[in-house]
Write a protein that binds this DNA or RNA. Sequence first.
DNA 1: ATTAGGG
DNA 2: CCCTAAT
Length: 610
Amino acid sequence: MLEVENDASKGGTAKYGEKDNWAEQSIGVDQLTFKLVQVEGDRTCIPALEDEAMEVEHLLAEPQSEEDLIVDVMHLNSENTNPRLGNEDFPCEVGCGNPKKDFGMLDSDDAHVVKQEPKYEYVENMMQGIEEEGILHLPYSLSSVCPDLSDIGFPESSEMDYASENMSFMRNFGSECQTISIEREEDAGEMSHLPNAIIPCEGTSDCAPSFLDNMSTDELHDAFRSMFGRDTCVMDKQWLKHRVLFGLQNHTEVGYASSLLECGLSSVENDDDMIWIPKNVPEEICIPLTNIFGSSALVVGTGAGKERHSCEDVAVANISKVGKAGFEPLNLEERPSALTATKRLRKPTRRYIEETSEMISRGCNERAKAPIDSAPIVSSRDKLSHVKTDNRGGQVVYQEYSPRSGIQVPNSLQFRRGRPKKNSSLMGSKILGSKEDMIFSVACQATCASRLARDELQDGLSDDCATATRNEKSGIRRKHHRLWTLSEVMKLVEGVSRYGVGRWTEIKRLLFSSSAYRTSVDLKDKWRNLLRASGAQLHNRNQVELQKKHMSLPIPQSVLRRVKELSIIHPYPRERKSRPPLVSSSPVSACSNGISISRSGRIVHKQIST
DNA sequence: ATTAGGG
DNA sequence: CCCTAAT
């Protein structure tokens, strides 16, 4: 992918033909997979994809310098690495000050930290940036922090290439938005305020069970040995602690994986529930692999989307079995930590079952992933796990649960999630279908790549955010919630500006043909939200905080401004068709009117109907 | 079938 | 996001 992308970007405004891209993507997939594996080990790690010579040892490799790790994560080889690409260039580093000290248990695994970030797009964007120009680019979210930059991001409407198709639109915008390379932001001070700031450092240190802190190095060594079946000569306590904790968590909470999350760390989305494992990698290798992959969410998820509910979605083979086989049980009896205790208690899938039955009764058509646990309460009929061998000889391991049918469904059929849409005759659903099939084959090899792929191509084609989600506390279950990506929002804005408010079907057909899951209603709703946001934004100077609070993806202020503009030009509903926008007032007041206009419109409407 | 609007 | 009423 690197090479391909580079070539493409040389040509200036890189526009991909969709078909060609698929080929490219599949290439990239391999590399990506390979690189990811490499991340776990040191740089000399043998490419698992090529000759499967990967050794378990690499998974337990001694810590290396953080630069190395990070660079590896970005899957950069030294040739490709931009000299400027230092620690200080990474938001995570910036945000956390002294990493070594501050998040002890995570010290040697910045890689994991990064990947666990829910806003995976961050990394993604960075990767893209690197890939394209060898420069680390800031993701869009920065623009919401730096007003001056955001202005660049969304120029006054004139600069938009309206005539072009959606893809080019995306590209244009994207380049404008993301080409803000980090070096322009010398005083990265503000970056710590980024809503998406990677690594919630705080809390991490608290995660480490206190008993680990109290252990001597020797004891840690023992724990390490009993856990991983090998000794380590590393004397660094932090490192040991981390490893032990890591193994511990995997061991005690295999299914739920990422228990870091419990400590306030969010995990990445593992929507696709599978990772690609070279076929002839012996099981002994797969096991730790899957554990690590699963728990640390190495398998790329879908970034932008959901907050934390996906922690249980990690689906890495039969981890229950795997865990037993892979790790010598740790002697926990001596130290029955609160951690393990609670973890074990939490393992039962009761909550899940409840939700499941609820969903079934409600006849929802979305699927939910089954958390994998060693003591399945759910009947095996409902819980499905299987190992598939894809045509490339790889092993696709995933587990899937289909709440609706309760029967096993080929992943390819379910791959396209989201509303099936009652009648999609309008759209180019045929094309979509075939593409998705292709996506599937790709996704089997590397989930992560599929994300990259679809974002690059036509964002969200085969997205997987549309999962039933639950929030234990609030009990809120948003069924097909698929987070709007920035690009989608921009497409929507673009569409509105071009076709006007209310032409949702048009907009959908013309700009969202690739994302079948967005209905015209969705567009309308989103627009409504955008209006609200754009209005609210005026009042709150400090939107970043606000957005943080709302946990929604940051919408660049520039976009919102544009929304406001459009809300003036196109008063929300086509109020009586002829309602003049009453733009007489100053822009500011008009902006704030964006909503009130719509309100009044509604009122009028009501009055008429009554 | 599409849109507006409420929940 | 879901549902419904209105068109």
